[in-house]
């Protein structure tokens, strides 16, 4: 029996179900190509804004031990025009461009910048937990979510995903607003707002104070959210949060994810091995369980 690692996330077809999460390994097309060659089914870029951003002073990304990380990078990115120039010659790597901003017009103008670029989709960042006026502050306002998704959808000719996280309002309202506005899929979840204090220095470990928790500690939160979205909405989901092994990836699929994003796992594994190892593990699991496609497993744990 031949099983296939192909994944279908709504209109987005992926040769493999593992995707690089946004914010990880930045904005270099050469690095994207390397990760794609090493097994990633697609690459989500760092979140891109209209204008370039330097981000916060260090420390911006700090390991916490136990496979946990906290970060507040401050959305550093070269801006939409420069990034569009960087990826213009790409023909082979499925790049999903993550967009961040505070007004609907910013999103449509950024999409226009990417016209002519070979990209697989957009992911709207509605959940960055550590920058004012964008990310979670947009995600917490379902009416604004609706306008942002609509603006992006109307400008884009490729699938649009909305990335949600745990903010002040019920994230399921954000999901609902994004779906009503025409989102092709949901990415869940982003990092979870957190604070880590250094007791010797007697101050936060990050220059920004508040940051986003990622890695192993948030894996089960991600499973819960993916399962909730899957059970309440008819929408494809890219699961994200705490995936470092093939077991974590399978668990997210069984919770309801059609594909799985990896991020912090790159911090404890080789960029040349992490995706292949997870893909191989999923394939062996499917073989053992007599499953022919990733699609058959989506949401099976809660069916």
């Amino acid at each position: 029996m031949e099983s296939s690692l192909e994944a279908q996330v709504g209109p987005l077809r992926l040769e493999r179900p593992t995707v690089l999460a946004s914010g990880i390994l930045g904005i270099s097309v050469e690095i994207f190509g390397r990760l794609h060659g090493a097994g990633a089914g697609a690459i989500v870029s760092k979140s891109i804004s209209v204008e370039p951003r330097d981000g916060y002073p260090g420390p911006t990304v700090v390991p916490l031990g136990g496979g946990g990380w906290i970060n507040a990078v401050g959305l550093s990115n070269p801006g939409a025009a420069a990034f569009a120039g960087m990826i213009r010659d790409n023909r082979t790597v499925p790049i999903i461009v993550s967009l961040v901003g505070s007004a609907p017009e910013e999103f449509s103008s950024m999409v226009e910048r990417f016209e002519g670029c070979h990209i697989a989709g957009y992911e709207i960042n509605l959940s960055c937990p550590h920058v004012d006026d964008v990310g979670l502050e947009v995600g917490d306002d379902p009416e604004l979510v609706s306008r942002v998704v609509r603006a992006t959808k109307s400008a884009a000719s490729v699938p649009v995903f909305a990335k949600v996280g745990l903010g002040r309002s019920d994230y399921l309202d954000t999901v609902s607003a994004a779906i009503d506005a025409g989102a092709d899929g949901i990415t869940a979840i982003n990092t979870v707002q957190a604070l880590a204090i250094d007791i010797e220095a007697q101050r936060p470990k990050l220059s920004n104070g508040i940051g986003g928790l990622s890695g192993i500690p948030i894996g089960t939160i991600a499973q819960r959210c993916v399962a909730q979205i899957h059970s309440q909405f008819d929408i494809p989901i890219m699961g994200c949060g705490g995936v470092s092994t093939w077991e974590d990836a399978v668990a997210l699929v069984l919770a309801g994810a059609s594909a799985v994003q990896l991020g912090s796992a790159l911090g404890y594994g080789s960029p040349d091995r992490v995706f292949a190892d997870v893909n191989d593990g999923i394939a062996r699991y499917m073989e053992r369980k007599g499953v022919r496609s990733v699609r058959e497993m989506v949401g099976r744990a809660l069916a």
Binding site: G23, L25, G26, I27, E30, I31, R34, V73, L266, G267
Partner: peptide
């Protein structure tokens, strides 16, 4: 370099990550 551990990608040089 921001993370030093192969996560942030700030140190990319072509296909290489200078930190990792």
């Amino acid at each position: 370099m921001k993370c030093g551990t192969g996560i942030c990608g700030s140190c990319c040089m072509g296909r290489e990550l200078v930190c990792g």
